[in-house]
Design a protein around this nucleic acid. Sequence first.
DNA 1: CATGATCTATCTGTTGGTAGATAGATACGC
DNA 2: GCGTATCTATCTACCAACAGATAGATCATG
Lengths: 184, 184
Amino acid sequence: MNDVANAVMDAAERRMRSGGFNGFSFREIAEDVGVKSSSVHYHFPTKEKLAAAVVRRYTDRLGEAIDEELALGADPYDVLSSSFRKTVHSANRMCPITVLGAGSLDLPEEVGVEVQRFFKMCLDKLTGRGLSENEAAELLATITGAMVVSAALGDLEAFDRATTDLVRNHVSHQASSSAASLGG
Amino acid sequence: MNDVANAVMDAAERRMRSGGFNGFSFREIAEDVGVKSSSVHYHFPTKEKLAAAVVRRYTDRLGEAIDEELALGADPYDVLSSSFRKTVHSANRMCPITVLGAGSLDLPEEVGVEVQRFFKMCLDKLTGRGLSENEAAELLATITGAMVVSAALGDLEAFDRATTDLVRNHVSHQASSSAASLGG
DNA sequence: CATGATCTATCTGTTGGTAGATAGATACGC
DNA sequence: GCGTATCTATCTACCAACAGATAGATCATG
């Protein structure tokens, strides 16, 4: 992967964050990168391939980041939550895969497969650390939805309001199952 | 509001569920309804106005439906949850406002305002029945995210996995605060 | 005849995608 | 080393389709 191909993926990812699959064009990306649109086509023959490549790279990167932090013994929920929190509070403000996922009912097949892979990866990281399928699904859903709601409200703190109690409950759940119930 | 105007909003809402704001065109909607695209422009001069009108109608309808069920004394979480669950398990499979919300970073202003109104309405229904701001935010986020994740995975049951424990916890929370803790 | 609603026809701009030329690098045979 | 062919990456120029939007004609109804 050369410089231009990476720059194209960067630009596509940036634009996907706000508009999803229909939210960017070859010409816009070409302008972002500083080349002609035909050069974008040279590296990614179709829009579908480009979007799929962006999602795949995003999934791989997040997966690696999660693994690194999990290796340090961190709680799996904290890792996932703080990772998404970083996104929300950064200049990006939104996870591009969540945008694609929300509009996934008419996503090109190849892109849909990659989006599925992303969410399955997130669930696997949670269940792989002992959470039940329901717990994992609930945590992922809450974090995902918190991003959507806070973006829609234009209120970054909405993300924290939706997730702070979840942390508390999760921690107390750990405590009650590892050191017996404290009651209340 | 005459027949055509309503049919246009129906078609727009249907297409928004899968593609968001960029996921439909005047020509597609005109074809759905059986008129020419200029007739769609007659009722809704711009795409922004059409989308805003659809969101406003959707918000009003859901708000009324929630009020009716709340008047019967139902638990506010159950009402919101089962309402969205109905959407997910219907042929529609997705809430159009959630799709717009996820891609809200580049939504036309008028549409963004209506999307905000939708989510604020949901939060108000919950806090108006005694839930704290954090509880309301968490419940709304979980339901919203559950829709996104289940749509992305193409797995309707993912919605239930993400929300069933939430019901249990919420119910036991009610129980413990109204009839003393049972422990565990 | 005036109004509301629809039509035909058209405008301008953008879209994803393709064809073909060009320049520079790399590899190979002699 | 030299000429030739291939490969890589970019460009210019173009295409058909579609986008949102507008102007003006038509037509029914009251």
